[in-house]
Every structure is written in C-alpha cells, then in structure tokens.
Amino acid sequence: MRFLFAVLFVFSTAAQAETIQVAVAANFTAPMNRIIENFTRATGHTVKTAFGATGKFYAQIKNGAPFDILLAADNETPAKLEAEELTQAGSRFTYAIGTLVLWSADATFITDGAEVLNRNQFNKLAIANPKTAPYGAAALQVMKQLQVEQLLAPKLVQGESITQAYQFISSGNAELGFIALSQVFKEGKVANGSAWIVPAELHNPIRQDAVILKHGKDNAAAMALMEYLQSESARAIIREYGYQF
C-alpha cells in the first residue's frame, strides 16, 4: 500500500517537474552546483549537468547531443550555434562576465601584483590553451598589454582548459599561472595560495553566454532555469565567485 502511494506520488509530481540536461563551462562548476540546488528546491525541476570545455560541447551539440541549455565559457560559441539555427531564437544572454586571476599555490609567491611577471623568477607559467579557451586568450592579451609576452613566451605551458592549468599550478609543476577567479575564490576572497586579480581593462571582457538549444526548445524547465540565472538570488551566488555582470 505504501509502495502504491510512493508510485502515485512520483507520477503526480512528474507532471510538473521535469528533468533538463545542461552543458556548463568548466569554470562555472562551483557556482552552478549551488544555483541548481536552490533552483531545484524552488521549482522541483531536476537539472543534470555536464561540465567541460565549450569547444567540445559545440561539437557534441552539432552532432545531436541531448542538451537543453548551454552555459558557454565565451559568447562566440552560443552565437555560432544561433547562426546555425541550433538554438531557440532570442534566448541568448550573458549570464556572467569572467574575471582572470594570476594565481600561485605558494602563499608568498605573488605579493606585488604584476611585478612578479617582470621579475621573471620562475620556471613555468601555466595558461589555458589560448586557441580554445577564452581565459587563455585573455591571459595572452594581458601579457601583451604588460609587454612581458616575449619575455615569458619560453616559460608558458598550456592546459587544455583552465581546469588543467589549475592542476599544473596546484601540483607545483608550474609556479604560477592565469586561471579563472572562480576556481580559487571562496566567500569573497582567494581561498589559498597567493594571487593577483587582473584588472578588467587589461583584456577583452570574458563574456559567458547562455542559450537554450533546439533540444530544449519551449521546454518550461529550461526557460525557468534561464530566468532563474538572471534572478537576484542566482546573481548573488555568481558574484560570490568573482564574476561580474
């Protein structure tokens, strides 16, 4: 009898509560997990997430991956998908603007901001692949602006994503590197190591766009999540991880 009630309960809620699949840029992992928790509590919808590189998601979406929403690490990929008519028209918006940070796992390494780059007393500087990762491209722009590009070129190592760049630095194989502030930011400050938060004017803004994909077209839960991402409670979380709007 109890079992029957349980079954009835599951089916009755399933009518309104839906499950959606969302592809999320790796740098947005931490805030997204918290946002989804709140979103599910508020709406009853279930959100399944895949975290990874935006370029890979693009290839998967083009080939029919069943994602309802893409939260990209850039604004080019969602625009490209839109031009290829793989999205719900008019659903695209910027959910966060990323902040770049120069970070070292050593708490005493970065004490005077960009000066550490000029001093050049390290073996390896990690960045994400600038060809594919927006944070990597921004890192290159910063080094160009600071005129240390030539000086540091022999010391650059590339991770395939900022997640990997973070691994290179946290394991000590690279003394420092450019990653996303969201990766090391907790409760309003850099949680460990030492860091220089790169001023936004040193690189093009890292606009991260969200878009509803063809698979999630006219899906109520997908629209609800897009709306929720723009709500004040979601933005408060996003801001906590060092993103701007």
């Binding site: 590189a53 370029g55 890979k56 692949n129 060809k131 594919t132 395939e160």
Partner: peptide, 8 residues
C-alpha cells in the same frame, strides 16, 4: 588533433 577539434 584534439586541439583542432576544440578550435573547431
């Protein structure tokens, strides 16, 4: 190859 794919 992975790079080429990632870079579209």
């Amino acid at each position: 190859i992975y790079d080429h794919v990632e870079a579209m």
